[in-house]
Nucleic acid binder design. Sequence first.
RNA 1: GGGCCGUUAGCUCAGCUGGUAGAGCAGGGGACUCUUAAUCCCAAGGUCGUAGGUUCGAUCCCUACACGGCCCA
Length: 469
Amino acid sequence: MSYEALPHRFAGRTPIAAARDAHETLEAGAGSGTTYRLAGRVLGRRGQGKAVFCDLEDRTARIQLLGSADELADEAFAALKGVSLGDIVGVEGELIRSRRGELTLRLTGYQLLTPCRLPLPDTFHGLKDVEARYRQRHLDLMVTPESRERFAVRSRIISSLRRFLDDRSFLEVETPVLQPLYGGAAARPFVTHHNALGRDLYLRIAVELYLKRLIVGGMERVYEIGKNFRNEGVSFKHNPEFTMLETYEAYADYHDVMAMTEQMVAQAALDALGTTVVVVRGESVDLAPPWRRLSLGEAIGAACGVNPLEGARDEAGLRAVLAADGVDTSRDRTWAALVDHMLSHYVEPHLNEPTFLVDYPVELSPLSRAMPADPTLTERFEAFCGGMEIANGYSELNDPDEQHARFEEQAAFGRAGDDEAHPIDEDYVHALGYGMPPTGGLGVGIDRVAMLLTGASSIREVVLFPAMR
RNA sequence: GGGCCGUUAGCUCAGCUGGUAGAGCAGGGGACUCUUAAUCCCAAGGUCGUAGGUUCGAUCCCUACACGGCCCA
C-alpha cells in the first residue's frame, strides 16, 4: 500500500457520538433515512463473505459498520474486505438499526485513510502490562477507554482552573523555566548549561519568586500553570517533572487563599466530573467547601502524643519519638526536617477528607509571613486529600530584612547538611525592598488533583508520558 | 535504600517432579449476506528479560544484574 495514494483529508465527517445521539430511538430493523460520513479506527471485524461488519471508533464513541457487496462499489467492497484491525478509515452511509438492535452505518462508501501496519494489542483483554501502557501511551490510549477518559478529565480540570481564575481577573503569565538561581520550594534542582552565556542554569523547582516580583510590579493578581522539575526520587505521587498552578493575589491573606482553594478545587470537580463527590482509597469524599481546618501542631500531637510546636524546639525529643516508632531519622538534619517527617509519617497518610493544616513553624516556611501572636509560627497552610498534599499557600513574607534573615537561616541549614535548603536570593530580597503589598499565594499540584478526581492510585496514570528508568 | 512478586509469540496467558515450549486473539491464505469476544479450515510465528553457575540435560534449581508492580522506609 502506497501512502502517496492515500487521501490527504476526509471532509464533512460527523463525530460518532453525535450521529448515535440523533437516532437513539430508532427501532430495530428500521432505517433513519439520514446519511453520515464517519471516520476513525477499526477496532473490531466480523466477516460474512459478501457482508462485512466492523466496529469503528473515534474520540467520541464506537459504532458498527455494515458493508455489503450489494451497496458498495466492487473496488470499495474489496478494500473493506482487506481491512485490518487498527486501520483508519473514512466511511459514508445511512444510519440504521440492525435486526439485532445495534445502531449501524450501512455503507455506501468506504476509503482506507491510513493503514495500521503493526499488530494491535488484544482488543478484548486490552493492554494489561503497566509498563507497556506507560512506554507506549499511543497503544494504551487506543485500546484503553478508561485511560482516554482519565486524560480528558485532566484536561477539563485545567480548563476549569483557568476559567475560575480568569473570571476573578487573574492574569496568566509565563516566567522562566531556566533560572540563574532556583527557589520557592525545598527541593534539589536539575542543573543545565547555557553555552553562549557560558554559565550553568537551573530548571525551576517553583515559580514563586518570579510571580511575587510581578506583584511588586503591580500586576496584583497573577497565575501560572506549568512544569516544575525536582531532582528527586519517583514514587506513586512523585514524577521528576510535574505540573503546578501558582496564584498570587495582592491584599489577600492565607484565609482568603484557603477559601479560594476549596472553591476552586470543588468547581474543578464539578466541571470535570459533574459532582464534588469522589471516591478516594475506597472512601467517598466530598470536596465541597468548607474543608476541615486543623493546626499542624495539634494534628501531629493527636496522632503521636507529642505536639512539636509547643514549648522549646526539642530536636532530640522529636528524634526519640520517631525512633520509638521505628522511623529512620538519620537524614533529618534539623528540627524542622523532623517536624516535616512527623507530618508525613503520622498525619498525611490519614488525611483522606479534604483538610487544611495551618500554622506552620517558621523554620519550615522561609517565605511565609509570621503570625503576629506567635512569631515562631507562620500564616501558612497545606491542603491534603486522599493521603496526599495537594496544595500549599500562605500570607507572603514581604519584609525584605526578615526575608534576608530567613534566607540566612536556610543557608545555615544547608551548611548543616540539608540539601533541600533554600539558596540566598539577594535579587529577590532587593525586589521586596520596593514594596510588595500584603499578598496571599498558592501552589496547587495539578497531577495530584487529577489523581484525586480520577481515582488514580499512581501519578503515572495521569501523566501522559511519565518518567521511566 | 529494604522486602515480596513478576518478566514465555505483537497482545492476554498456560507450561506438573529438570528432558530445549502451548492456547486464544492479532497478523498471512481460504470459506461464509444480520454478525457483534462471530464461526470454520490451512500455514506461519519463540535467544522462555540478560549474564553466569549446578546438571548428561535448565523456561523450570542457584547467584548476580536489568526493567516493572506492590508494600515498607
